[in-house]
Nucleic acid binder design. Structure first.
Lengths: 330, 330
DNA sequence: AACAAAAGCGTGATCGCTCACGCAGGGCTT
DNA sequence: AAGCCCTGCGTGAGCGATCACGCTTTTGTT
């Protein structure tokens, strides 16, 4: 392993001082064109790469970098949220690095990120918050979409209880009587019931509360929605309104309905969750309990901004209510 | 502006040495539980944030970070590519930061990124390569999807000429006679004809070469495709095969065809470009000249790896040929 | 011609952390 | 009881850049 080429090497080779090399590299004034060219030539020849750590340390950089962590950027919900958050981040002059915990143990990932960024934002699944905070080694964490119990990190939760409590009556006023939920997360020893499911069950009548079908593998996909919808209509044929766990699942349901000759929203009303922009181009366009396009992104950015501001900021726990976007499917 | 809380402050306040603070923070051995707890408590109280620059500098970090730059992460092509590249990057232990040049002058962006990452990869639109390289201040650039003329950066281009030369005859063997192109990029003083258009024109007969419709604003969207397809069928009614600039545009065309009662692929065959996974869930599923899911990602990662390896690597210029994925629409 | 100003370049000091050591004290072995 | 290892800490020396100066030499001004 050969030693790194430093500014000193360039200086020696070009017969100038470090400062002059700096001047040449960052095109600062007070250097002649001739020497600048010579230095640049030498640095190219030796393959010099300035160390971003050294220079940022020396200039006590104000540049902030945040990490955004999600399950998978292949899921349109996460990728759209990423795009939104990137806008908010760059508006504030932050860099944003992305990571998914598909291929790496989460705590390990957090540990790696902690050495590289100034804040970690995202959907994390590690339930042990203390371990999370420990792995982050002083780097603040903004946890999304889940309820935090300790006072050691920031969080922004989604209030599906309120959202469903508003959604269901509105649907009823449009004629909905028999609801059903296309759930994504199985109920079992290792899974708590999803907050969406809880919110759904609380908001509907008892008969509808039983009409829940879990979309199996592959999870969170259009195909899962298609399968799930078919099973749903087989088991609960008098359903007139379907709430899907996500817009992706709703899109699958839409396709299944199409194949079965079921008119949406004529025979069955369909509501997704997420507010994907993709939902606007299906036919019929998807009505959705939107997270995207609400204040969610701004809240994330705002809390992150505080977290970044350093020192002893109190831990914030906010909650945003998803908002219904009425389109054609319901 | 108050001074930053450093490791020294913690050490003083906790009555220990810097090294002990380091040991506590990075939970290293050779420290008693009592002192570790005390140090942690103090550091929390003072709001200590370790400087990632200082620590990385001191440990001469091997961690690499690359920046991935595209037009917009709202475009599914870019977001899927991002997901693919992220996999390749994390498999190699790199961090990946993302940036779009929607809201910021490109050269400025490059300059900012240069101070934060070890390589810049992406679709860049600045035509002045010298300016690009200068803005990057020694940080290597891997340019995607365009032909490079100078020998100062790496590049990976898409060979649409070859791709179309294979695609068109295959379509003809399936019965296609009158082709049309749904182009996205207008032809004008500030735009060169797109490589896709050139490749198309070279591969089809003269009559088809005239059948080109430009999908206007908003560019690169489903809506644009819908409008474009309608115009196309109005102006060139005997078209039997439509090549869309992208899968998104093809999806719009699909919708338009649906509304006009045109059967795809029965009456009109439709081929997109990109290979979006989304194309698999439309009905009919989209045949596409795929970039995603080909060796493109691996080639990018491979070239980037060389670029990152430092020193005097020769500049590479590779080219990958998009690959037809036959699905239902053609 | 005299003096000021600017251009061109170099020398510590410093940014905040980690690493390689060094050194004391307590519990083990033999 | 002498020797040894292990635990628990602390001290100097960098990591690779930039910044604030300071020093010559040129250029310009009156």
């Amino acid at each position: 392993m050969q030693r790194r080429v430093t500014i000193e090497d360039i200086a020696r080779e070009a017969g100038v001082s470090r400062q002059t090399v700096t001047r040449a590299m960052n095109d600062m004034p007070r250097i002649s064109e001739a020497t600048r060219a010579r230095v640049l030539e030498v640095s190219e020849r030796l393959g010099y790469r300035p160390s971003r750590f050294a220079s940022n340390l020396a200039r006590t950089s104000k540049a902030k970098t945040i990490a955004f962590v999600v399950d998978s950027f292949r899921n349109p919900y996460y990728s759209e949220l990423t795009a939104d958050l990137l806008d908010a981040a760059s508006a504030r002059g932050w860099q944003m690095t992305i990571a998914s915990h598909e291929n790496e143990p989460e705590l390990e990932l957090i540990g790696r990120l902690a050495g590289e960024v100034d804040a970690i934002v995202g959907y994390l699944s590690e339930p042990d918050e203390t371990a999370l905070v420990a792995a982050a080694r002083g780097v603040p964490i903004v946890l999304l979409g889940s309820t935090v119990t300790t006072e050691s990190l920031h969080s922004i939760d989604l209030d599906f209880i309120s959202a469903f409590r508003k959604l269901i009556p509105e649907l009823e006023s449009r004629g909905s009587r028999r609801f059903a939920l296309l759930e994504s997360q199985p109920l079992g020893t290792e899974y708590d019931p999803s907050t969406r499911r809880i919110a759904y069950e609380r908001a509907v009548d008892t008969r509808s509360a039983e009409a829940v079908v879990v979309c199996e593998a592959p999870p969170q996909s259009v195909d899962a929605g298609e399968l799930g919808f078919n099973e749903l209509m087989d088991r609960f044929p008098d359903t007139d309104t379907v709430i899907a766990f996500s817009d992706l699942i709703a899109m699958g349901a839409l396709r299944a309905a199409h194949h079965r000759g079921i008119d949406v929203p004529g025979q069955v009303r369909l509501v997704g969750v997420d507010g994907l922009s993709l939902g606007a181009v299906t036919s019929p366009a998807l009505t959705s309990l939107a997270i995207l396009g609400t204040e969610f992104t701004e809240q994330i950015a705002d809390v992150t901004e505080r977290a970044l501001s350093g020192a002893e900021v109190p831990f914030e726990h906010r909650s945003v209510v998803p908002l219904v976007i009425w389109r054609e499917s319901a």
